[in-house]
Nucleic acid binder design. Sequence first.
DNA 1: TTAGATGCAAACTATTTGCATTTTC
DNA 2: GAAAATGCAAATAGTTTGCATCTAA
Lengths: 160, 160
Amino acid sequence: MSAELRLNQIIDKLKARHFRLTPQRIAIVKALLTLSHPTVQQIYTEVRSSFPTTGLGTVYKTVTLLNELGEAFELTLGGGSSHYDAIEPYPHPHFICPQCGEIVNVEVPGLAELLERTGSTMNGWVITSRVDIWATCPRCQSAAGIRKYPEGGAMEQTSA
Amino acid sequence: MSAELRLNQIIDKLKARHFRLTPQRIAIVKALLTLSHPTVQQIYTEVRSSFPTTGLGTVYKTVTLLNELGEAFELTLGGGSSHYDAIEPYPHPHFICPQCGEIVNVEVPGLAELLERTGSTMNGWVITSRVDIWATCPRCQSAAGIRKYPEGGAMEQTSA
DNA sequence: TTAGATGCAAACTATTTGCATTTTC
DNA sequence: GAAAATGCAAATAGTTTGCATCTAA
């Protein structure tokens, strides 16, 4: 899914629902699509380069609106602010490098079935789920040279 | 792992590290082990039934200490406060019922391998991960009678 | 023209910090 | 007795809300 296509999709949805296409709003959507999994602060900083009077509250309101419209997915990582994904605005697994902070969407083949099976075992009606993996990315591996998190740490208990 | 055993393990660790065994601290550990995945507020309320002058800051400090000692695992669910698990103080999958708020630890057979395989595919050094499933629990299913979240909602996009 | 959006400031929630007083070891 | 913990209050951070002013439709 490309950023340009998503921009049009989101604009169409806003139009269809009779929300106004203000310059700030469009700039916020573009920032959401340009930056990778940005926080509200990051969007705010970006938007202010084009619209210096934009308020932080406006960014919060717009991001919340897009989230309610199903056009921006909120990713809560704990410790600080939420991140948003407007390119793939639905739950999906992430790879997160704690060294550089990079967040990447990943495919985990077979995961959906595994979770659905677990849901059945528990006799639950599955609504949604989240799967996130923290890992030192290749770039940070070479930068570090040595392993920051030696064996025997949290790693071995990665999952039950 | 039983609560009584964990209580002794935690007390032993505190002793070994020369942290003091104050009555408040022990009450906080007991509350952590008695309540299921409690928040700091819930621990605070519980502890104040025995020690009415206990401060919220003390609960925060103790829970943070236990977390740093690896004796309490922090679960960040977004929207509000962190939950803590001192019985299984390491990452593991959860079942969360959004209706009643119940949080249960679950086993997902084969998950560790799946995540490790994904880590290799990404050439990452896996540090930790989280897997959580939101599902209407059996009790709330019967209470509701009908499905709160019809097919075609967020459910179908449970994972990539 | 007018309902809706912006921008600014105040309010709120969860959490952290500082410090005088109290308590464990 | 000394180092550490408590309890209280003030500070912080992220986010939400209220409202007068402005603007897209």
